Computed example of a mutant assay.
Amino acid sequence: MKVLIIEDEKPAAHKLLRLLGEINPDIEIMDVLKSVEDSINWFLHNPRPDLIFMDIQLEDGICFEIFESKPIHTPIIFTTAYDDYTLKAFKVNSIDYLLKPIDSDELKNAIDKFNVHYKQNDYSRFESIITQLQPKTKERFLIKIGEHYKSLQTSMINCFYINERCNFIHAYNGKNYPIDYSLDKIEQLIDSKSFFRINRNFIINYSAIQDIIAYSSNRLKIVLKVCTEKEDIIVSRERVSDFKEWIDR
């Protein structure tokens, strides 16, 4: 089995190498990479590994930037000190998600899971399994209008927002509809390429943005093509950097 390790912390990489050697001495380590940039370049010039062990926080960014640059179909076992990215990990080719410090038994179980579902380079079978495991992004939301129900396509949603502790959809027809989902839940259900949560109260659709304006305290003001009743839609200071990366993809 040919394995690629993407890990920027030397002690963590050394421990993983040691544990893998103890679990299966026949594992071949193709390379140990430290950064997003190195990983992207490696995939451009090297054959496909059988399995990838990948940290999430790398020395020059988040590992998910690798997937934005190049499609990667190899199964991945994530090894990280953070549990904030579990859902996002399973939207790519994740077999398992191990928290540091890596436990030998948990690592062996993850490799056993890989061996059960993925043998003899059966890529088509693996991709079928991954497709079944990946959370589906919602294509429609069911909304209630009086005594009637309506199915609203996600692509027709201008934004999701909170007003007086209630959650709403603002649609491209200019109307507002109450919704039972919290914004935290909505954020998990929708396509992150199309929608971005700019602050605690707003998730906006990229295609709904009409203008982006520099605002006080290094924040940004968003003008939507179809305005809501809110006067100002502001990207919070802590989200500005991520928002710019999301826009500049």
Results as ranks from 00 to 15, higher is better:
R165H: 09
L19C: 00
Y85M: 06
W42L: 02
E187G: 12
P178C: 03
C166K: 14
Q188P: 08
K193N: 15
N167Y: 10
K144R: 03
L44H: 12
V226E: 11
D242S: 15
N205I: 05
G21Y: 04
E65F: 12
D122S: 15
Y149L: 03
P75I: 07
F160K: 11
D232M: 10
Q210V: 12
R140M: 07
K144H: 06
F67R: 13
K88N: 13
A81N: 06
Y149S: 03
L20F: 02
I5Y: 02
K88Q: 14
N93A: 12
L183F: 14
A13R: 00
D96G: 09
H148F: 01
I234E: 10
P25G: 01
I56V: 13
N158F: 04
I204R: 03
Y97N: 09
S192F: 07
K2W: 08
I186C: 09
L58A: 03
K138S: 13
D180C: 05
N167G: 05
S128Y: 07
I76A: 01
P49K: 01
N173S: 03
R140A: 04
E245P: 15
A81C: 05
V235Y: 09
H117W: 14
S35Q: 12
V32E: 00
S104Q: 07
I23A: 02
I157T: 01
I23V: 06
F64N: 15
S35M: 10
H117L: 12
T154A: 05
K15H: 05
F67G: 10
K91G: 09
L133P: 13
L4K: 06
S217M: 11
N218W: 08
I145Y: 00
Y97E: 04
R197F: 12
T80V: 04
K175G: 00
N46V: 14
I233G: 07
M54V: 08
T80P: 15
I62R: 07
T154L: 01
K144P: 02
P178M: 03
E245R: 15
A171Y: 09
